[in-house]
Amino acid sequence: MKVSKDYRLAVKAAAEKLEKDTKKVSLEKPYGGSYVSSEINFISENNKAITMEFREIGIDRDGKFLLVLDNILG
């Protein structure tokens, strides 16, 4: 399986916007069926989520976030 660079960049762009008061950010179009969340103690009801570290996608920040693939068809 391959994940496109374009999708990974969209994840990074959304994760960069996660702040104390912004806990959920949808990915840019056409990937709007996925979103990132800083609430890693929560998981979407259908478990379509994985955790990622900010640093592994090139963001200079400690900690983790959740990538939720709620509806990959957007």
């Binding site: 399986m1 391959k2 994940v3 496109s4 374009d6 999708y7 056409p30 990937y31 990959i72």
Partner: peptide, 8 residues
């Protein structure tokens, strides 16, 4: 078109 995932 923008690509997302591929899988064999």
């Amino acid at each position: 078109p923008k690509p997302m995932f591929s899988k064999q």
